[in-house]
């Protein structure tokens, strides 16, 4: 099973949102990282078949998804960045409605909904209107609908936005379990969401894939560019505008500890650190703040 994105381009009036992207997705969890506006959502909408590429094609097992139509949608699950729902629906009504659209029988629907609500700790709110749920709960309802048909291809656009840390950990575990023999593509700019569960990562910038590989392989791209040092708080102002500071921490001795990115160490007491995926992310997107 593979999903091949073949030289796909999409242009909005004066902006090239996706620029000749080619990528072959195989079973496993894929992280799609990039800053806001990098083209991730546009690419995902094209994979979902709700947006047509200006050029190029998306192929599922060598067949264009445009020609597969319902067959493709039958094995597909999608959670968009903005989870839209009918305000009048309760959680159970909404999931039943989507299940019917996904072609699940009544029995399958009942069993699947019970299971997902349990797994996503939504059982207590099954009769509540979605509109009255917290942001995190809404997001979990969105995740539940995407998993209803046990899709072979699961596309999740910013799935953890609004989830608290505990919920995010739980979600990552559910996804890791689910991803066996399936293609799961998670778009995010929250690096830790994919750092530990993604088998492969693609990093998008200005509509193009600029880096691709396993977490370890990508981390090597910033090897010898991550350092740690300590300094007095008074010295910090001197470095703030000049260094890409990943992390700042007040130490017990009154000094501050800095984790920063640089081609060369900038202080004598700097020591090289093992790189992480978020270091690469910040190296590639210097304007972004670190989200953990």
């Amino acid at each position: 099973m593979e999903l091949k994105i073949d030289h796909v381009t999409k242009q909005y009036k004066d902006k090239l949102a996706v620029d000749d992207v080619s990528l072959t997705l195989t079973p496993g969890v894929w992280g799609l990282l990039g800053a806001n506006g990098a083209g991730k959502t546009t690419l995902m909408r094209m994979i979902a078949g709700i947006m047509k590429p200006a050029s190029g094609d998306i192929l599922y097992d060598n067949l264009s998804i445009q020609s597969l139509q319902g067959e493709y949608r039958n094995i597909f699950g999608y959670l968009p960045q903005e989870f839209g729902f009918y305000p009048e629906f309760t959680v159970a009504d909404y999931l039943s409605y989507v299940a019917a659209l996904k072609g699940l029988s009544r029995v399958e629907t009942r069993n699947k909904i019970d299971m997902l609500l349990e797994e996503l700790t939504l059982t207590d709110v099954r009769r509540k209107k979605i509109v009255k749920l917290s942001g995190g709960m809404k997001r979990r309802v969105g995740i539940a609908q995407a998993l209803l048909n046990e899709p072979e291809i699961l596309i999740l656009d910013e799935p953890t936005s609004g989830l608290d840390p505990g919920e995010r950990v739980k979600f990552r575990n559910i996804l890791s379990k689910f991803a066996q023999n399936r293609i799961v593509l998670i778009s995010t700019h929250i690096v830790p969401d994919v750092e530990y569960i993604a088998n492969q990562n693609a990093i998008m910038k200005e509509g193009r894939i600029i880096a691709l590989g396993t977490t370890e392989k990508l981390e090597r791209l910033v090897e010898n560019k991550v350092y740690r040092c300590t300094m007095r708080p008074g010295e910090l102002a001197k470095w703030e505008g000049r260094l890409r500071i990943v992390n700042l921490k007040n130490e017990e001795d009154g000094k501050v500890s800095l984790r920063y990115l640089s081609e060369e160490p900038v202080t004598e007491n700097s020591i090289a650190e093992a790189p992480r995926l978020e270091d690469l992310y910040l190296w590639l997107f210097p304007q972004e703040e670190v989200r953990v």
Partner: peptide
């Protein structure tokens, strides 16, 4: 309403969603 709420994006990705 589907388009305004964004519900459209999910519905159109389902087997019977067209």
């Amino acid at each position: 309403a589907d388009r305004q709420t964004g519900a459209d994006d999910i519905l159109r990705c389902t087997r019977h969603g067209r």
